[in-house]
C-alpha cells in the first residue's frame, strides 16, 4: 500500500516538472496582443461613433482665450505636457502606465483645442467610455488638475484663462470618477 502511494506520488512529481524557459504564455493562453499602428503609433480601440459631442462640453467662442493659450500649437503642447507630468506623478502614474499615451496626447490635445474654441474637431471617445474601469477618484482628478495647472503656468497662460478651461472640464467629473 505504502509502496503504491509512493510510486503514485513519484509519478505525479515527474508529470509536474517545471515548464521550459521562454514559453510565450500570452500565446499559450490566447492573450491577444495589440499592435501599434505603424503610422500613428497608437494602439487600436474598439470602433465608436466619432462626434464633437464626445468632448463633453460646448466650446468657447473667444479669440482672446485661444490667444491666451498660445493658439492650437500652444494648446497641443499643454495637453502633451500635462500627460508627461502625470506619467511622472507617483500619485497617478499607475493609471496612465496601463494606457496608450500616444493616443491620449492626441485626443486630449484635440479635446482642449475643441473646448477652447481653437477650431479643432474631437475624434476621441466620450468621457465615460474613455475612463471606464480606470477606478479614477476625485483625488486623482485633483492631481491631474494640478498637473494641467503646472503645464498651463509653464506656457504662461493667465490664471483666469486657465480656470475657464477647468470650468469646462470640472462638470465632467461625474462621467470620470468611479469611486
Amino acid at each position: 500500500m505504502l509502496l503504491t502511494t509512493a510510486a503514485a506520488a513519484a509519478a505525479l512529481m515527474l508529470l509536474q516538472q517545471a515548464p521550459a524557459e521562454g514559453v510565450d504564455w500570452d500565446a499559450e493562453f490566447g492573450v491577444e496582443t495589440k499592435e501599434r499602428d505603424p503610422v500613428t503609433g497608437e494602439l487600436p480601440v474598439d470602433p465608436y461613433e466619432q462626434s464633437n459631442a464626445n468632448a463633453g462640453a460646448t466650446p468657447y467662442d473667444s479669440a482672446r482665450l485661444v490667444r491666451d493659450f498660445g493658439g492650437r500649437d500652444g494648446i497641443v503642447r499643454i495637453a502633451a505636457r500635462t500627460v508627461e507630468l502625470s506619467e511622472a506623478d507617483p500619485r497617478i502614474a499607475a493609471i496612465f502606465a496601463a494606457h496608450d499615451m500616444v493616443r491620449l496626447k492626441r485626443t486630449l490635445g484635440e479635446q482642449f483645442c475643441y473646448l477652447i474654441g481653437a477650431g479643432c474637431d474631437y475624434s476621441g471617445r466620450d468621457m465615460r467610455t474613455a475612463h471606464a474601469e480606470m477606478g479614477v477618484t476625485k483625488a486623482d482628478m485633483n492631481a491631474l488638475v494640478e498637473n494641467l495647472q503646472a503645464a498651463m503656468c509653464e506656457a504662461d497662460v493667465p490664471f483666469a484663462a486657465q480656470n475657464r478651461l477647468l470650468a469646462k472640464l470640472a462638470p465632467m467629473s461625474g462621467q470620470v470618477v468611479e469611486r
Binding site: D73, V76, R77, A80, R106, G109, E110, Y114, C120
Partner: peptide, 8 residues
C-alpha cells in the same frame, strides 16, 4: 486637428 496635433 489630426495632422497638426501629431506633428506638433
Amino acid at each position: 486637428a489630426y495632422a497638426p496635433v501629431l506633428e506638433a
